[in-house]
Deep mutational scan, measured.
Amino acid sequence: TEYKLVVVGAGGVGKSALTIQLIQNHFVDEYDPTIEDSYRKQVVIDGETCLLDILDTAGQEEYSAMRDQYMRTGEGFLCVFAINNTKSFEDIHQYREQIKRVKDSDDVPMVLVGNKCDLAARTVESRQAQDLARSYGIPYIETSAKTRQGVEDAFYTLVREIRQH
């Protein structure tokens, strides 16, 4: 089974770092803004072998026109913010609204991801993020692309959301 996953969120929150940590098991430290990259990885989730087709997208506003296209083809979405960047957390709402509009559905598989949880300088409390996820009816997972904490959990949870859909 193949799953088309799309990673969305503001610029600099760590979308590529999360994806590369999942696929290649290493942490990319330097920031190089993405336009669009796709990665494929075969994994076993709950005993089922599946192929993850992951689209890593641009957070930069100037590429926002490309969003409709990949939102149409994606089956599930990782909505990523950084726990030390309140603005990126506030941006999640717009991504969710755009996904709902493009998919013409209120019920699209999504996982809210709070990345950079290895950093002490948190400005978005776990509780705020949990409340937001609960209001959307989606899971919330904290990750660190640096330490790998929660990385597999985030992507695998999204696959489970798609399966249950």
Results as ranks from 00 to 15, higher is better:
R72G: 07
S135T: 11
A145E: 00
Y140E: 00
C50K: 03
L119H: 08
G14A: 01
R148K: 10
T123P: 14
M110H: 00
Y3T: 09
C79H: 02
R40G: 07
E75I: 02
T143H: 00
T57A: 01
Q94W: 15
Q69A: 12
I35A: 03
V124K: 12
V43E: 06
R96K: 11
T1G: 08
D153L: 07
V111W: 00
A120Y: 06
V7Y: 01
Q24D: 03
S16R: 00
R160K: 13
Y95T: 11
G12M: 11
Q128I: 12
Q164D: 15
D29R: 08
S144D: 15
L112I: 08
L158P: 01
L119M: 14
I99V: 06
Y136M: 14
L52V: 12
R40T: 11
E142M: 09
S126D: 04
C117E: 09
G59L: 02
I23V: 08
Q21K: 09
H93Q: 14
R148S: 08
T143R: 00
N84H: 14
V102H: 00
Q42P: 11
K100A: 10
S88A: 12
R163Y: 08
A17G: 12
A82L: 00
G9W: 00
F155G: 00
I54G: 05
H93E: 14
K41V: 11
L132M: 15
A121N: 10
E142A: 06
I138V: 10
Q94F: 14
R72N: 06
N115K: 13
Q24F: 03
R134G: 06
V8E: 02
G150M: 09
F89M: 11
S38Y: 10
D106N: 13
F27R: 01
A121Q: 05
E161H: 09
T147W: 08
E2L: 07
D29T: 10
Q60Y: 15
T86H: 14
R134L: 11
N25C: 06
S64C: 14
L55T: 09
D131W: 04
K15N: 01
A133V: 05
V113Y: 00
C117P: 01
D37H: 01
G47H: 10
A65V: 10
I45M: 10
H93A: 15
L52Q: 01
K15S: 04
K116N: 15
L55Y: 04
T34W: 03
I92Q: 05
A121R: 05
T1R: 12
V44A: 13
D32C: 04
S64E: 13
T157N: 10
G114E: 03
Q60I: 15
H26P: 02
D118C: 08
I138Q: 04
C50F: 12
L78Y: 06
M110Q: 03
K4M: 12
V8T: 04
N25Q: 14
R67S: 14
F81N: 02
G74L: 05
R127W: 08
S135C: 14
I83Q: 14
Y156Q: 13
V80R: 00
Y39L: 01
I92L: 07
Y156W: 11
V113A: 06
R96L: 10
T147N: 10
V43W: 12
V113L: 11
Y95I: 13
R122W: 04
G14H: 01
I20V: 07
F89I: 05
T57Y: 00
M66N: 08
E62V: 05
S135Y: 11
Y39M: 02
A154F: 00
L55W: 14
Y95P: 02
S16Y: 00
G114M: 07
F89H: 10
G76V: 09
Q24Y: 02
C50Q: 05
Q42G: 11
C79R: 02
I141S: 05
L5P: 02
K146Q: 13
V102M: 01
T86I: 00
C50V: 12
K103Q: 01
G12F: 11
V113T: 03
P109K: 04
A120H: 12
G11Y: 10
T147H: 09
T86W: 07
G137E: 02
C117G: 11
E62D: 13
A58Y: 02
D106G: 09
E75M: 14
T19G: 10
Y39K: 02
E125L: 08
I162A: 02
R67W: 12
I138C: 09
L22V: 14
K4H: 10
M66W: 02
S38G: 11
I99C: 07
R72L: 04
V43H: 14
Q164R: 14
E48Q: 11
S135G: 10
E97L: 10
Q94Y: 11
F27W: 12
Q60W: 14
V159A: 06
K4Q: 12
N85L: 05
E152H: 11
K41E: 05
G47S: 09
K103W: 09
F27Y: 12
P139F: 03
Y140S: 02
S64Q: 07
A133M: 02
G47I: 09
R122L: 07
H26N: 14
S38K: 02
F81C: 14
Q60M: 14
P33Q: 06
A58F: 00
N85H: 06
S126A: 09
R163C: 10
I83R: 09
V108L: 08
D32M: 03
Q149E: 12
L78H: 01
K100M: 11
E125D: 11
R67T: 14
N84G: 14
G12T: 14
A120F: 08
D91R: 15
L51M: 14
K4F: 07
L119E: 13
R148V: 12
M110K: 00
